Computed example of a mutant assay.
Amino acid sequence: MIDEKQLEIDDLQVHYKIVNAGATTATVIFIHGFPFDCSIWDKQMEALPDDICGISYDIRGFGKTVGGHSYFSIDLFAADLNALIKQLQLTRVVLCGVSMGGYIALRAAERTSDALAGLILCDTNAEADSNQGKLKRFASIEQIMGGGKALFAENFVKGLFSRQTNEHKPLLIKQIVDIIAATSDDTICAAQLALASRTETISALPAITVPALIVRGEEDQMMSIEQAEQLDSALNSGGIIEIADAGHLPNAENPEAFNEAMNTFLKRIN
């Protein structure tokens, strides 16, 4: 059963969901991407093995996590994550991040590895934004500030999903559109600036020695196979798991295949 809780960390009221295990051997912390919330991980939380605790949380400014200032950075998000781990006194933590959640997981792993037992990196990369990518983010900020949030959401979702999802999963598409609509303009713009200003983590990858799983939706238009291969090679993960009928959110688009890969990995590290 998934329970919902609030935790105060410094200036934040962090909303998170938790699935407790009987004799816990590890805890998976699920980190959502931009501009989503922790609900995208519900099907993974429900599918965890009996001995694995699951936590999904809303990143600063997203979902039901409130408080704090309006300046965001990937380093700040990573500091929030490590504070969550410390306050909950977690050990043997597996970080599972999709897209921006993967950036946060890598930065958190770079900052501290004391409790880290594994990494699941999904449709993400270790590179900084290119100049073209930065300009695209700045343009989206201008669009939102000019009252074009609905158009931003429409265009964003168009490139998010696989053909199968676009044709046959309208409820999933609506869920994502509704999440974006419920997220404040300030949060979306601040997060875009955080993404544009992030530094690369390629140079930090050799120091990460815990087991890693690299997952990618076969039809992802936002992250390339070359970026996944870079992570696979640097982290020695033993190969990329590609999820069929999935784009940038394979955990939501094809949860059965994603969960199989996730649980096989969790058994291996246990």
Rank of each mutant, 00 (worst) to 15 (best):
D232F: 04
E256C: 05
T165Q: 06
K174F: 10
Q227K: 14
C53G: 08
M1D: 10
E154T: 14
F34V: 04
L235N: 06
S99Q: 02
V28M: 00
V98A: 03
S197R: 15
G118M: 09
E142P: 07
A252C: 11
A194D: 05
A21D: 00
I179T: 10
C189T: 04
T201G: 14
L116W: 12
A181K: 14
S224I: 14
V66S: 13
Q230D: 05
F258S: 01
Q175P: 00
S39P: 15
A207F: 15
I74P: 06
A252H: 02
A212G: 01
G61C: 00
K86M: 07
H32K: 07
A252F: 04
G61Y: 03
G68T: 13
R92E: 09
I243H: 03
L7P: 13
A105L: 07
G22Y: 00
S203F: 07
V93L: 03
G22S: 06
L160S: 07
G133V: 02
S237G: 11
A246Q: 14
N125A: 13
E127T: 11
D178P: 11
Q89I: 03
I120W: 13
A47F: 12
E46R: 04
S140D: 02
R216T: 04
E110L: 12
L160N: 05
S39V: 13
Q87A: 05
S113A: 10
S56V: 14
V94S: 10
R60D: 08
A150C: 15
P250I: 02
I173T: 12
L95R: 05
S162F: 07
T25Y: 07
I179E: 11
E4I: 12
I144Y: 06
M145P: 01
D185F: 07
V210W: 05
F30R: 05
V19P: 03
I208G: 11
R163A: 13
G101Q: 06
A21E: 00
A182Y: 11
G97E: 07
V94G: 11
W41G: 00
E242F: 05
H248P: 03
A196I: 13
F265T: 01
G148T: 08
G101R: 11
V157K: 08
Y57C: 03
L171S: 10
A244R: 04
L249N: 00
E219T: 12
I52V: 02
S203H: 09
I269E: 01
L81K: 02
A139L: 01
S56M: 14
Q227W: 15
A234K: 07
S56D: 10
A109L: 15
D178S: 11
K267L: 01
L116N: 09
Q192I: 01
H69E: 08
A244P: 06
V93A: 10
Q13V: 09
S113Q: 04
I74L: 07
C53F: 06
V19E: 08
N254W: 03
F36W: 13
G22E: 01
S56C: 15
T27H: 08
N166V: 11
L160H: 08
R268S: 03
Q13S: 10
A246K: 09
A196P: 04
D80H: 08
M45G: 12
T199C: 12
G146Y: 12
N125D: 13
D58F: 11
T187M: 15
Q192M: 01
